[in-house]
């Protein structure tokens, strides 16, 4: 190689641009997300469904409180108990754990987990399926910035959709609960943390989804594992708690969906695991999938 040829190779090209930047990669991933009609439809459907289920939850809990007020909260609903002898506040306190009113904005969270988690799997697995990943990794040969940008786009989108949907659900639940004589407001204990942590929880699920899509490189497989992890595993571990022995009793509390859900109950409900600990366990679950995903993405041929 002569010096003149190297000099030629070093001349800046006329296509402009500042070279590869992380901001550029982020923008690229955002364009990818919004330029697929299927994704846009799915996001709008998720938003509507989460609010719909949340509204239904508000109405259901209102009904339960109404019933409790009528029958005085007696669990058997004995006719001897004094009718309408209970205030809404008192009736509310008799709600079984898990049905507290502060959880209403997150009533549709499971839908959000299912769809946004699947979308996260697809965000990368579809690139492997179509071959797009080769274009992506040619433009971003270090690979990890592409993964990081995908993760950030997914975290922000899932967080915003979940939190906004939760606030809309909250607003809708005000008149519904009012008709049952209950006042719903932002000052309600645990409400705001539940809304914001709900967004984090779904964002965390999206990270697990992205990692599964990266590890398995297969849309159907990734979504199946995600569903198994969040919707089948908790049932399995619940059955395990019936096995004699102290060890099995609390296994259920450690699965990602239960630990992650526990995180939303800050200051509430005594359970084996503290909400903070629940959050940390969930974080550990994210890393269990994220770290191998990052490692294999860097290592493997695409």
């Amino acid at each position: 190689m002569s010096t003149s040829t190297t000099a030629k190779a070093a001349t800046p090209s006329t296509a402009g641009g500042a070279g590869l930047t992380f901001g550029g990669v982020l923008k690229s991933e955002w364009i990818k997300l919004r330029s697929l009609t299927s994704t846009k439809v799915l996001l709008i459907c998720t938003f509507v469904a989460v609010i719909g289920v949340g509204t239904l939850t508000a109405w259901l809990r209102g009904t339960i409180i109404e019933q409790t007020m009528k029958f005085g909260g007696a669990p058997t609903g004995l006719p001897g108990s004094s009718p309408s002898g209970m205030s809404a506040e008192a009736a509310e306190k008799t709600l079984p754990p898990g049905l507290e009113l502060y959880g209403i904005p997150n009533g549709g969270l499971q839908i959000g987990i299912l769809i946004l988690g699947s979308l996260a799997v697809l965000f990368i697995s579809s690139e492997f399926a179509t071959g797009m990943i080769r274009s992506t990794m040619t433009a971003i040969p270090k690979r990890l910035p592409a993964f990081a940008a995908k993760a950030i786009v997914l975290v922000v989108v899932s967080y915003v959709i979940t939190v906004v949907a939760a606030f809309v659900t909250f607003l809708i639940s005000i008149p519904i609960l009012h008709s049952y004589g209950i006042s719903m407001n932002l000052q309600r204990e645990g409400l705001l943390p539940a809304i914001f942590l709900g967004g984090l929880y779904v964002a965390g699920v999206a990270l697990i989804g992205l990692s599964l899509g990266t590890l398995l490189r297969n849309s159907a497989g990734g979504i199946m594992v995600l569903v198994a992890l969040f919707f089948v595993l908790p049932f399995g571990t619940q059955l395990l708690s019936l096995v004699p022995g102290k060890f099995w009793l609390h296994v259920n509390e450690y699965v990602p969906s239960v630990a992650g859900g526990r995180m939303l109950e800050i200051g509430h409900r005594d359970a084996y695991i503290d909400p903070w600990a629940g959050g940390l366990i969930f974080l550990a679950w994210i890393l269990v999938f994220l770290i191998p995903a990052v490692f294999t993405l860097k290592k493997r041929d695409v």
């Binding site: 296509a15 402009g16 590869l20 990669v25 923008k27 690229s28 080769r134």
Partner: peptide
């Protein structure tokens, strides 16, 4: 050009190029 099918099948050609260009802040004009 290593594989003519290194494109997401549901994305338009324009958006594919736009996403590729964005990584290097290459203009829409280009």
């Amino acid at each position: 050009l290593l594989d003519a099918k290194a494109v997401h099948t549901s994305r338009s050609a324009y958006n594919h190029l736009l996403a590729m260009a964005a990584t290097h802040s290459i203009s829409t004009t280009r």
